[in-house]
């Protein structure tokens, strides 16, 4: 039930992202909301159920970015990001905005590098279609800065959702 709720909310956010960014004229750098949700899931879920959620979230992102990257790219990134977040969940206490922002920046840069490596290995036409790798490297840091401020918002939102689903009243991530 919790997994379905997280997936539905993530789907809604991804669907609203494109027209909303269009409305606000912020088209240059798109925040990677899926990655933030995966980090949250890694911090709060058990391994098996969390992995399934990460796979579904990655598939959603793949679906919303179909023309841009081959299917499987964001699924793989989500799974690996989840595993890292899950392993670090006992060492990192992401309970305030600054650590979440810093961790988000780290994850976005890691995800961009992973996307570059996976593209070089698996996407046959990647090197031959212009300066795609330079584009990823150039956009990596602005992308991280565009995504990071959404980290605390996403953590708060999904923590509220978790609270609602489990009838908890004590929120881990304060507003």
């Amino acid at each position: 039930m919790r997994g379905i709720a997280i997936c539905l909310l993530a789907f809604l956010l991804l669907a609203l992202e494109s027209p909303f960014l269009d409305l606000t004229s912020v088209r240059g750098y798109t925040p990677d909301l899926t990655l933030l949700i995966v980090i949250y899931v890694g911090q709060t879920s058990r391994l098996s159920s969390g992995l399934m959620l990460a796979l579904v979230l990655g598939a959603m992102k793949d679906g919303f970015c179909l023309g841009a990257s081959p299917v499987g790219m964001y699924m793989e990134i989500s799974v690996l990001a989840f595993l890292l977040s899950y392993k670090l969940s006992r060492r990192l206490a992401l309970q305030s905005a600054i650590p979440i922002i810093l961790v988000s920046i780290f994850y976005v840069i890691g995800a961009a590098l992973l996307e570059l490596v996976l593209s070089l290995i698996f996407v046959k036409s990647f090197g031959t279609e212009g300066s795609s790798s330079m584009l990823i490297l150039r956009s990596m840091f602005p992308q991280a800065l565009a995504t990071a401020p959404f980290g605390p918002v996403i953590f708060w939102l999904f923590d509220r959702l978790d609270g609602y689903m489990t009838r908890r009243s004590d929120m881990v991530y304060p507003a």
Binding site: M52, A54, P70, V71, G72, M73, M75, K124
Partner: peptide, 21 residues
């Protein structure tokens, strides 16, 4: 097993779709 599958299945999809996007 679940972890192995979660890593390998997307890689397989990526391999299939990356060959001919």
């Amino acid at each position: 097993i679940v972890t192995f599958l979660a890593i390998v299945v997307p890689l397989f999809l990526l391999y299939v779709h990356g060959r001919n996007p």
